[in-house]
Design a protein around this nucleic acid. Structure first.
Lengths: 217, 217
DNA sequence: CGCGGATACTGCATTGTGCATCATGACGCT
DNA sequence: AGCGTCATGATGCACAATGCAGTATCCGCG
């Protein structure tokens, strides 16, 4: 192994591009980047605060950002700004195809394994999920009603906001339905449970791709 | 969380419980666990195959699973089975509150930063997202129409299947809407763009929690 | 008999997380 | 003037998780 001067042996991850995107808006300190990531990116790209701090340094190593040391009194504070190469990399990434979206939900795992415990726990899991999605919808609603840091970005910004809101709305609607479904499971009417199961499968099975092209595999 | 006596200093992660849940259904080899994780858990708890292999060993170390060495000819194959302590741990976990659900979407990040590139890339990102969610809905539909490995688990299984299907349906619907929204951005009618932005914000802002408490941000 | 694909893993380098820790600045209170 | 508290602005460490390459065996097919 040898040292490569110029371009070090570092690979850009999705985290790199996410932080790079923030830097494209304006220069930030790592602390601000972490806050901003928490407020905006977290909705569709959750990363630990720690990762943001580490990423800023990696971006500098990649030549995609520059750091400037400033100070507030005795206290050091490093501001990161995007470079020309950084903007180029960001544009190239924006033009490239993306990995498919993924859902991660501890509650969903528990619901999947619900037959290993009593329905009271299933019910509690569904209820908590309802609260959590309601809370998310609340926070999104507050954001939408409030002021924006970058007014000129609003027109595209609302697209991703709505995506997130729609997903959480779907989860909230599901939770409402699921609460009823658990009632049916609890009621002990075998025929009703059977019917509910068949109907749910039918709903899912009846959601093929958009255009009515018959699948052939 | 409680520690069983004699158990080494290993902490259970969500991955531990996810794999433990699979073991609660029947004994599996790590390879089968990896396949099954890919087929079912992946929908709401995506983990690399590697993690499943490592997790099985950790479960043994925790005393929650036992491994039995068998062989197919010259070839070794280890079967993992849940222990009594494992079932206890699983039940305790199923009764505990869960972390909120999270979405991760590279496409959403790109849409969030769409103003850094041309609308043609925004359009492509939306279209790819549409294809990916359609594909997911297709696969779910096929699963729902097919046979189940554990027929007696179907009644609860359909709950989590529907959750996943609903989320992907929401994403597919969003993509349809977004395609139209991008058209509006492209058309160059400033007033229409303005209207669309305001209306979208209004939709998001009008989704507070279930109970009709008036928001007072 | 040779070939390819499914089965059944392991090793390594690197990224990402969770938690603890530390230090200063800003602001208000008494 | 002194004190508390919260926001600011990070760093270190251990461990979890990923991605990818590599290894080797079994089985069916021509």
């Amino acid at each position: 192994m040898q040292y490569c001067q110029g371009v070090p042996n570092i690979k850009a991850t999705q985290t790199s591009y996410a932080v790079l995107g923030l830097l494209a808006l304006k220069p930030w300190t790592t602390y601000e980047l972490a806050r901003q990531s928490e407020r905006s990116l977290r909705w569709f790209f959750p990363r630990a605060e720690r990762a943001v701090y580490l990423e800023a340094k990696r971006l500098v190593a990649l030549g995609w950002a520059e750091s400037t040391k400033t100070a507030t009194g005795r206290r050091a504070s490093t501001v990161y700004a995007i470079t020309r190469a950084g903007r180029r990399a960001l544009r190239a990434w924006l033009a490239a195809p993306s990995a498919p979206p993924q859902l991660e939900s501890e509650g969903a795992i528990k619901i999947f394994f619900a037959d290993q415990a009593g329905t009271e726990h299933l019910r509690a899991t569904v209820e908590l999920l309802a609260e959590q999605t309601d809370d998310a919808l609340d926070r999104l609603a507050t954001m939408a009603a409030g002021a924006f840091t970058f007014p000129d970005r609003m027109r595209t910004n609302v697209l991703s906001m709505r995506l997130v809101s729609d997903v959480h709305q779907a989860l909230a609607d599901w939770a409402d339905w699921a609460a009823g479904a658990v009632d049916v499971l609890d009621a002990g009417d075998e025929a009703a449970v059977e019917r509910q199961t068949r109907e749910t499968l039918a709903v899912i099975a009846g959601r093929p791709a958009r255009a009515g092209t018959p699948s052939n595999h």
